[in-house]
């Protein structure tokens, strides 16, 4: 296993995802002799995990079962230990595309935070690209290094513990793209520009507040960046439901019920779990939005460094 390369079987030292059902999952470090407790009972790594195929159903001690999944940056994002607020896959996907990342790209990032975006960036630029990530919080930087080691991607990333606004990214004229997720990105624009290649590159800054965006846009313009563009992306998830709506009783005469006006209840949907389908209802499948959804994560400002 590695976060940048699929493997078929679970091995000692792997990070695997235990899937309990309906978005309930957690990561586990696979170790000989180790055990993991779940609500379905105990999983014994040596016998239940090691040597099994990723995607297998594993029966726990109480008879319940779970699936063991191969780690991906997306699953990691959903399960990682938070040390900071993190970026989720919806924002990550547009960042990756708009920064034009691909195998071989050199990327600078700050701050590293909990490493949610970092894993996705590393996945995309591997095997020939590199991520230079800067985190001013020493403990977080250390923890990120440790995770990258565990996940088999340390050769693709350099973690530097310094203040990006004061000291920059520690590299110059080598990056294809720069990403900023810091409280005052406008203070790092100059460093971002010098980290980017001479022939140009792309930059992205993530900020929750519009005032931050305004200052960033001004700084970008002053530094000669072009194609400055701010956007926001929102995810809407739908629950798939079979819904029945009752036909109101408008006091139709009893003898008239042979022609109910429109085709009600008659189309019995195949595979419907509702056996007690009553007359006078209409049933249909619907994608129902969740009751409460994320309304705002942050504004994403993109720009291009053009050659001078």
């Amino acid at each position: 296993m590695s976060f940048v390369e699929y493997g078929d079987t679970i091995k000692d030292g792997d990070t695997a995802i235990v899937f309990l059902g309906h978005e309930s999952m957690f990561p586990v470090k696979v170790q000989h002799g180790s055990v993991t407790q779940t609500k379905y009972g105990v999983i014994r790594h040596s016998t239940d995990l090691i040597g099994k195929k990723y995607g297998s159903k594993v029966t726990c001690s109480k008879g319940g079962w779970v699936f063991i999944l191969h780690p991906t940056p997306e699953l990691w994002t959903m399960n990682l230990p938070h040390r900071t607020q993190i970026l989720y896959s919806t924002d990550i996907s547009i960042i990756t595309m708009m920064l034009e990342l691909k195998p071989g790209s050199i990327v600078c990032e700050s701050g590293t935070g909990s490493g949610s975006l970092s894993h996705a960036l590393i996945r995309t630029v591997a095997p020939t690209g590199h991520l230079y990530t800067v985190e001013f919080h020493q403990q977080r930087a250390e923890k990120a290094r440790e995770e990258f080691r565990e996940h088999g991607v340390e050769h693709l990333v350099t973690v530097t513990n310094q203040d990006v606004c004061k000291n920059g990214f520690g590299v110059s004229s080598i990056a294809d793209a720069v990403f900023l997720d810091i409280p005052s990105p406008w203070e790092a624009i100059g460093h971002a520009k010098s980290a980017l290649k001479a022939e140009g590159g792309r930059i992205c800054s993530f900020s929750p507040c519009i005032e931050q965006v305004q200052r960033t846009c001004l700084a970008l313009e002053e530094s000669g960046f072009t194609e400055i563009n701010t956007l926001e992306i929102l995810l809407r998830v739908y629950n798939v439901r079979t819904v029945s709506l009752q036909i109101p009783d408008l006091g139709r005469a009893a003898e008239d019920n042979s022609s109910p006006g429109f085709d009600s209840s008659s189309p019995s949907p195949q595979g419907s779990s509702c056996a007690n389908l009553q007359p006078g209802t209409v049933q249909f499948k619907s994608g129902v939005p969740l009751r409460e959804v994320v309304g705002h994560t942050g504004y994403l400002t993109f720009a291009t460094k053009s050659l001078l």
Binding site: V213, T230, E232, I233, R236, V240
Partner: peptide, 28 residues
């Protein structure tokens, strides 16, 4: 919606998610 239902019946898939994204551009 139909595909979702049929995949559930088939099995062999987990974490099914039906989604859409909204994109809003800003003048700054």
């Amino acid at each position: 919606l139909e595909c979702y239902t049929k995949l559930r019946e088939r099995g062999g898939v987990i974490n099914l998610k039906l989604s859409e994204t909204w994109l809003r551009n800003y003048q700054v």
